[in-house]
């Protein structure tokens, strides 16, 4: 039994397996991180873009409530950025 544990070839194989696993985990982590970053940045950008559009849309609606539909559509247009970012999650 002791021989088995101290056998250099077995030890080496175990070490190699461990390194491969670690590398795989590491790359998986990077991938998830990249996806999270892309969604996060895209969300930030669309929020920034929606800020002005939303303000203008609310202004227009206050004057004429019939612009609600159009205002809403224009306000959420930059939301497409986030949708593209979600596609990125599946690609990475």
């Amino acid at each position: 039994m002791l021989e088995l544990l101290t056998d250099p070839t077995i030890l080496e194989a175990a070490a190699n397996e461990y390194t491969v696993e670690a590398a795989e985990a590491w790359s998986e982590g990077i991938r998830v991180g990249a996806a999270a970053l892309s969604v996060g940045l895209a969300a930030l950008a669309s929020g920034y873009a929606e800020r002005q559009i939303g303000a203008a849309a609310v202004g227009a609606m206050a004057e004429d409530p019939s612009t609600f539909g159009r205002g809403l559509i224009l306000t959420v247009l930059p939301e497409t950025l986030v949708i593209f970012a979600i596609v990125v999650i599946f690609l990475v």
């Binding site: 303000a55 203008a56 609310v58 202004g59 004057e63 004429d64």
Partner: peptide, 16 residues
């Protein structure tokens, strides 16, 4: 400044 908001409202009034 909230230029976008004020502009939208003012333009609506201008159109009226």
């Amino acid at each position: 400044s909230n230029l976008a908001y004020v502009n939208a409202r003012v333009r609506a009034r201008r159109a009226a």
